[in-house]
Write a protein that binds this DNA or RNA. Structure first.
Length: 989
RNA sequence: GGGCCCUUAGCUCAAGUGGUAGAGCACUGUGCUGAUAACGCAGGGGUCAGUGGUUCGAGUCCACUAGGGCCCA
């Protein structure tokens, strides 16, 4: 520091702790100005390719930390491949269309229903949706940059693009050509608020909630037997209005039971429902009940006129709940619908789009199905049909976006037939490498069970399904904008210039080849998984540039969160690619589990345990957060929070301290690492050991990352840092401190420098900021020829010649032995400062002990013993030595002290005290001092005997026993029962 | 009813192809003191959910059971 020593330091001094915030800002600016990302892309252009496909993120809000988890995987594997020179597209994707966006825009605008949207204008509404998506895609881009993700942000894909939408048209046309598209009548889960069907895929994702509903027991009086009724049970009272059948199990035993003055029929196993005052008249097998006619509970309604109600057989009836007789309303439930179809029951569809009863339901008409339960009960009671009501808790489907309880509604929807594709898609799935492997089983399970893909939605913001259906029943699918233009007979001019969205595309009419009428597009928009499913093709310009597509398809790698995606994105891309190309669009998928808060619960803002991306980056640092993700086992749920962040921070701090240590002494010694001349024979055992560890680590890192396993790498790096810090640096400190500029010192600097620089390159893909910061200081500062960013370096390659596994194994044994020595000192209560004369070692295993000899110096230094001797165990016992033992060794520590040993201990103790004084007085490491030790007896003798040592360690020019005329710091101690007054003064240069 | 996953120290998690159970955190003691709002060493803590099997040998492979989770019907 002093102005009269114009030393030129090579490296910027390293602060005690990394300021992650400052480093991030500095590095982000540095990258922006240096355009390193684009230079990296350009450098690798034309090389062998690494083909990554980004699963589109929904651009409907700021992204959360759980997205940062996935983005860390995406980023680190792309960076790793880039450092190996692979040519990549680096394309990010945004998912833009769909109900989720509509719901948020409706909230913004204060809308309650579809009527509000139509009043507002579909065109304005759709523009609002586009605006929202663009707004949040910008925010998500900024957030991604903040966490260090390198992508070609100016070239992100948007699923609302024309290319994406028209690619889906092409796909649907192909499906139609193969006869897979049909309009079906089905009972679909329906959200009355959103006014749309919810597909199975969407329900599967997050569509169930534990809910309590009133369940009702109702009498269905038999037509030919007065005073006798079927007893049925249902949890959805409103569906009784549309009852047309009652189902019994053919193999169950039913009974006729007298209760008071009536006879009730129910399953024998469910008799408890009747209480205790009943008498069983007769047992009847379910099969004999088939065909019985009964009066329906709402026969008086116009919609029920002419309907015959009868008992049918059904294998799925269970006697676990209810009465064993199931109320069947084919217009209100999926299973009911299928059974009704099979048994020829009448179908009554009670509900309109908004969930209210339609015409023909008398007092129910116009009322909302979810709110009529109590009136239904009252009505049934007045007709003498109500038996009883009880609360029933079950998992019930709700709308995954707005939370509204779903109803089941008879609707016309469009489907892709999946049976003809099932086997083919399963074959595609089998081509994929699933990480973890059970992913394949999960996917196949879904594929085996999937029903036809419902692709239509009666909404506004989404893919305009290119299906044109005439009143006469004819329909066709349009495969491209050009085809639409050619076939348009009206409205083209009102569409031209717009994206293929509602309402503009709805203006176009084509001619019906059967009846000649002008035909409109069906009003429905597409299921959003079509949007995300086509991206393997749309982003590679399948339609416009087939050669480019061939270069980039299929993709090597995708990574997304497992839960949900088997039936969503994985399914969609597999299905669509199988239709178009009969293959999987990706070769490997890495799946990861779910992020939870640190308390093990889900993250919820209202619970105060949610963490936002910006907050995480600010408080723990992007690098630390990324390391938390990288070191985690992706199969397990991740409990994320600041506590785990703090643990990781401390681990990384260990490395930072090693870096700081290097810089401190390299600056004092004016070391330029580039100019170090080191020969192989200069390397010590410890040098060769840590370099072997380093090269083993490099080898492992490449091997594991090639296998998409970053956890093993992160954990191995943590181990290495531990070894580097607590063994290599600790055992070599004196080599850096000593004043002689010899080859041994150069070897130490060389080795440590190699370790640090290789390590930062190794982990640069995981922690892009701090490694860049260290690289700039450690490499760029002294090597003008080095790439100007660490991310433009090539990934380290292992030097096999440097790997010596035997050395690594032996050093492990040595460290175990040292540990035992520390334990013996601990047992004897003797500080390491106090030198001891000898330690005796017995190695239990039979083999030679010669391997240990080269390590004797290390062991003696570490344990501060003069001599290391070998002996048999029997020589150790009863020797008066302090004995310690583990599986491999028995050791004995000789604790007897000669005066000389005691004096040395005193000298070391004194040195330590003086060093403390220097430090608290604020002296620089290199400052020289004047030293006075005022004492007598043993202490004086010790100082005289070890004065050279003391002067050397404390940088004292001289030691006097008389007071100094002037001093900077003074202290009094008692060492080994002798008092001493110490004065120190910084010497002027 | 069916499929898949999980269960290792008080807590959070490791233990590629079967070979004498390990970290970090927390706790206790202690050492070191120019890496220092750090660090080292030591200690207590485990019937690796349970039972049975294969094997010279099982946390690891197989079967079943229990508990937890995800999904399908």
């Amino acid at each position: 520091m002093s102005s009269d020593s114009p030393q030129k330091t090579v490296f910027q001094p390293v602060p005690a702790q990394p300021d992650y915030q400052a480093i991030q800002h500095r590095i982000l600016k540095f990258w922006e100005q240096g355009r390193h990302f684009y230079r990296l892309m350009a450098r690798n252009r034309g090389n062998p390719k690494f083909k990554f496909l980004d699963g589109p993120i929904t651009a409907n809000g700021p992204m959360g930390v759980h997205h940062a988890w996935g983005r860390t995987y995406k980023d680190l594997f792309q960076r790793y491949k880039a450092m190996q020179g692979f040519d990549q597209r680096f394309q990010n994707g945004f998912d833009c269309q769909g109900l989720w966006v509509e719901v948020e825009v409706e909230k913004e605008l204060g809308f309650k229903s579809k009527r509000d949207i139509e009043k507002f204008g579909i065109d304005r509404f759709v523009e609002k949706c586009k605006e929202r998506v663009l707004r949040f895609s910008r925010i998500q881009t900024q957030q991604s940059i903040l966490i260090g993700q390198w992508m070609d942000w100016e070239n992100s894909y948007y699923t609302m693009s024309e290319e994406n939408n028209y690619s889906i048209w092409y796909f649907l046309k192909e499906c139609h050509r193969r006869g897979l598209i049909y309009e079906g009548t089905d009972v679909m889960p329906w959200c009355a608020r959103c006014g749309t069907a919810i597909s199975d895929m969407e329900i599967a994702t997050e569509g169930y909630r534990e809910l309590t509903h009133p369940a009702v027991y109702v009498r269905f009086p038999l037509v030919e037997r007065e005073g006798e009724s079927l007893l049925v049970w249902t949890t959805t009272p409103w569906t009784l209005s549309s009852n047309t059948g009652a189902a019994v199990h053919p193999d169950l035993t039913y009974v006729r039971a007298r209760l008071g003055d009536e006879v009730l029929i129910l399953a024998q196993e469910r008799l408890a429902v009747l209480g205790t005052d009943f008498r069983v008249l007769e047992e009847i097998p379910g099969s004999e009940l088939a065909g019985l006619k009964y009066r329906g509970p709402f026969d008086e309604l116009p919609a029920q006129q002419g309907v015959e109600h009868r008992v049918v057989l059904w294998e799925d009836v269970s006697a676990n709940e209810g009465t064993g007789i199931v109320h069947i309303a084919p217009g209100c439930g999926k299973e009911d619908f299928l059974l009704g179809k099979e048994q020829g029951l009448a179908v009554i569809a009670p509900l309109l789009e908004d969930g209210t009863f339609q015409e023909g339901f008398d007092w129910l008409t116009g009322r909302f199905a979810g709110e009529v339960a109590s009136d239904i009960f009252e009505n049934l009671r007045s007709k003498g049909l109500l038996f009883c009501v009880e609360d029933y808790t079950h998992r019930y489907p709700v709308c995954w976006r707005c939370g509204q309880e779903l109803v089941f509604r008879l609707v016309d929807e469009w489907f892709i037939r999946m049976d003809p594709l099932r086997e083919e898609i399963m074959n595609s799935a089998r081509q994929v490498r699933w990480i973890p492997e059970f992913g394949l089983d999960r996917e196949l399970d879904w594929l085996r069970n999937m029903s036809d893909w419902c692709i239509s939605k009666k909404r506004y913001w989404g893919l305009a399904l290119p299906i044109f259906k005439c009143r006469c029943g004819w329909f066709d699918v349009i495969g491209s904008r050009e085809e639409l233009r050619q076939r348009a007979v009206a409205g083209w001019e009102r569409f031209e210039g717009h994206t293929p969205h509602r309402p503009w595309v709805d203006e176009v009419k084509i001619a019906c080849p059967q009846c000649g009428s002008p035909v409109s597009r069906i009003k429905d928009v597409g299921n959003p998984w079509l949007d995300a499913g086509i991206v393997p093709f749309s982003t590679t310009h399948y339609l416009s540039d087939r050669q480019y597509w061939q270069e980039w398809f299929p993709f090597d790698f995708i990574t997304e969160s497992f839960p949900g995606q088997f039936r969503n994105w994985f399914y969609a891309i597999l299905a669509m690619s199988t239709v178009l190309e009969k293959c999987s669009p990706f070769k490997t998928v890495l799946g990861y589990a779910t992020m939870k808060a640190e308390d093990g619960r889900e993250m919820h803002k209202s619970w105060g345990n949610a963490i936002e991306v910006e907050e995480a980056v600010e408080k723990m640092g992007a690098d630390v957060m990324r390391w938390v993700f990288a070191r985690h086992n992706p199969v397990q749920n991740l409990l994320f929070g600041f506590k785990v962040g703090q643990e990781v921070r401390r681990k990384l701090l260990t490395f930072w301290n090693v870096y700081g240590f290097f810089v401190t002494y390299a600056n004092i010694d004016q070391i330029n690492p580039v100019k170090l001349q080191v020969e192989a024979e200069d390397l010590t055992l410890l040098d060769r050991w840590i370099l072997s560890r380093l090269n083993s680590l490099v080898k492992l890192a490449r091997n594991r990352l090639d296998d998409y396993d970053c956890m093993s790498v992160a954990l191995a790096v943590e181990d290495f840092i531990e070894d580097l810090s607590t063994w290599y640096v600790r055992r070599n400190r004196r080599r850096f401190w000593k004043s002689a500029e010899d080859r041994d010192k150069a070897a130490a600097y060389y080795t440590l420098y190699q370790c640090i620089v290789t390590l930062i390159k190794l982990v640069a893909p995981i922690m892009p900021f701090i490694t860049e910061d260290i690289y700039q200081n450690l490499v760029r500062s002294c090597d003008a020829d080095a790439p100007d960013s660490i991310h433009l370096c090539f990934y380290p390659e292992p030097d096999e010649k440097m790997i010596n596994l035997e050395l690594e194994r032996e050093m492990k044994m040595v460290r175990a032995l040292v540990s035992l020595g520390h334990a013996a000192r601990e047992k004897a209560q003797i500080k390491v400062r106090q030198p001891l004369s000898r330690m005796i070692v017995n190695i239990k295993s039979a083999g030679s002990r010669d391997w240990l000899l080269p390590y004797a110096d290390i062991i003696r230094d570490e344990l501060n013993v003069r001599e290391l001797q070998f002996a048999d165990p029997n020589e150790l016992s009863g020797s008066g030595l302090v004995i310690q033992e583990d599986e491999d060794y028995v050791i004995g520590l000789d604790t007897s002290l000669t005066p000389e040993l005691e004096y040395e201990g005193i000298a070391r103790e004194l040195v330590r005290k003086i060093q403390n004084m220097r430090k608290s007085a604020g002296f620089e490491v290199v400052d020289r001092i004047a030293l006075s030790c005022q004492c007598a007896g043993k202490l004086e003798a010790a100082i005289r005997m070890f004065s050279d040592y003391i002067r050397q360690e404390t940088l004292a020019q001289d030691i006097t026993f008389a007071p100094l005329t002037d001093y900077d710091s003074v202290a009094e101690f008692v060492i080994n029962n002798c008092p001493v007054r110490v004065e120190i003064k910084r010497e002027r240069k």
